[in-house]
Nucleic acid binder design. Structure first.
Lengths: 296, 296
DNA sequence: GACATCCATAACCTCAGGTTATAGATACAG
DNA sequence: CTGTATCTATAACCTGAGGTTATGGATGTC
């Protein structure tokens, strides 16, 4: 009997949740799709994996046996994909790094140059990460590392090296009344609508609306964006204001956007992020070593 | 990225064969289906796994990395299924055993009774195996063991315990001219058409047409059958004759079939067969122990 | 007893995994 | 040098799988 790892992920999530409806939400499929898939897995294995009740789904003995065994299957496949990726990097001599916004600002190119000195013939391919899911390419193995700003989703599952920290400022439409002032305090902004990342970004989004500096008050959301271009456009249109690292004034200078110094919010830290795994592929280890020499 | 183990088996077979057309034959799919699936795997992994030429398919570096890693994935899934099956046997207290024809003849029931003494509350569920692929249920894990006659396909991949050996006779239509004789020599049968198993059964089929006793001459095939009922019908109809264990006269007695003693062919051995694996689930180990006490 | 929440089924839709037919490329033999 | 054989790739087509929405049945709680 063959099986798709998708089906095993479905099973694992149902086992963890104990409830089809919640598991379906986590998996971004409808509940009937999930119930059908779980039933199909049971039919093909020829045994019940769950008992069903009003309280949800409880694992049977065989279900527990499968729940114990599934991580090994999924980990083996993850390992296989990583082995393929490492071999492909070796063959093509390309390290893939995803990034958000301005990556590591002015440190980006020196890091890459340092790496190329350590690995003649190699190059670094930079790829834009999705704001809604900045670690997707890391998780899937499409990239080897990423320049991300702390915090990011599932941060404890990855290793990271802080490269630089810079203050955060506020970005607003050039014609915004507050744009007349050279400097602002965060307290001045509590009632302003914000351009924010999607809810799904969790702590990442909280960080960029400075949720911890609001004394429990909810942020007013003027627009939700997932890409820097959309983010800039929404700001320029006056849909809302946004916190930004001060380097944004350099990397995203536009006549219709004003950046103003800001007190009262935590600074922003850029880190190089990579999967927690031992041993690391040698080229990735070299890239990390190069980054370390340029870290603050 | 998710993957189906079917796709990994396709990849592995192509890697082994180095040729899509031959791999497609082994996998019982068409060559265009296989080329499409391999291409899809490459697209999803984002790298070439094979180089193509007139000589066929050669693995690339990433392809070799995947070829090295795939057994771990497939073995992990096999292990998961076995764990589920063992848990299910434990929960239901049922041992599943497949068999061909008359299983272990008169030894079958004493073995089962002995096992039930060792494991009160347990029972044995007997399931007919396919003649064309007698080990399918063993391979898939649907059964825990099987009563099979030696030789059987992929025999070296399984453990076995010979239970009994009996002479082979010849079965023929009751009206067959040779039915007048009480006893025959195999040399008398060389020109007779035979009722045979499918070619795919390999050594199993060779055994039952006594290929090794024919001095290199091909057998004349009067009919190909995959089930005992079809086999008996073909013999009774005079489509051909067949070698049979002498117990067939007891278990498959019919007025329209004559069984005659035969000299000049090897006897037939029934064995209990189970997967080579350590450790064995305790219930299966008990069944094997029970069978051992009843072996010749 | 009404409502909320759980899983299951029905009906439907789109696309994936297979087929056959055939094309293009290339190596080899005559 | 040409024809043939054999390799992989593509096109067109078909059936069934994996998803959806709508809804049903069961059950627990207030």
């Amino acid at each position: 009997m063959d099986v798709d790892t998708r089906l095993l992920r479905y099973f694992r999530t149902v086992a963890e949740e104990g409830n089809l409806s919640r598991a379906a939400e986590r998996l971004f499929v409808s509940q009937p799709a999930l119930t059908k898939q779980i039933r199909q897995l049971e039919d093909r294995l020829g045994t019940r994996l769950f008992t069903r009740s009003k309280h949800g789904m409880a694992l049977t003995g065989p279900g527990e046996a499968l729940a114990a065994a599934v991580p090994a299957v999924l980990d083996a496949w993850d390992g296989a994909r990583r082995a393929v990726r490492a071999a492909e990097a070796e063959a093509s001599q390309v390290l893939r790094v995803s990034f958000l916004a301005s990556a590591a600002n002015e440190k980006t190119q020196p890091i890459i140059a340092d790496f190329r000195e350590r690995r003649p013939g190699w190059r670094v391919e930079l790829r834009q990460a999705s704001w809604g899911d900045p670690i997707a390419a890391l998780v899937s193995g499409e990239v080897d590392a990423a320049f991300l700003r702390l915090p990011f989703p599932r941060q404890d599952e990855f290793a990271s090296l802080a490269l630089l920290t810079e203050p955060r400022c506020v970005a607003m439409a050039a014609g915004h009344p507050l744009a007349r002032r050279e400097s602002l305090r965060f307290a001045d902004l509590l009632d302003e609508p914000f351009v924010a990342a999607p809810d799904a970004a969790g702590a990442f989004r909280d960080h960029w609306v400075a949720a911890d500096a609001r004394g429990g008050r909810e942020v007013r959301v003027g627009a939700v964006t997932e890409h820097p271009d959309d983010w800039l456009t929404a700001i320029a249109n006056g849909d809302g204001i946004a916190l930004a690292p001060v380097s944004a004034a350099r990397y995203y200078a536009r006549p219709d956007i004003a950046y103003r110094d800001l007190d009262g919010v935590e600074p922003s830290t850029v880190a190089l992020v990579w999967p927690k795994r031992h041993p690391l592929p040698a080229p990735l280890a070299d890239f990390i070593a190069a980054a370390r020499t340029h870290a603050d």
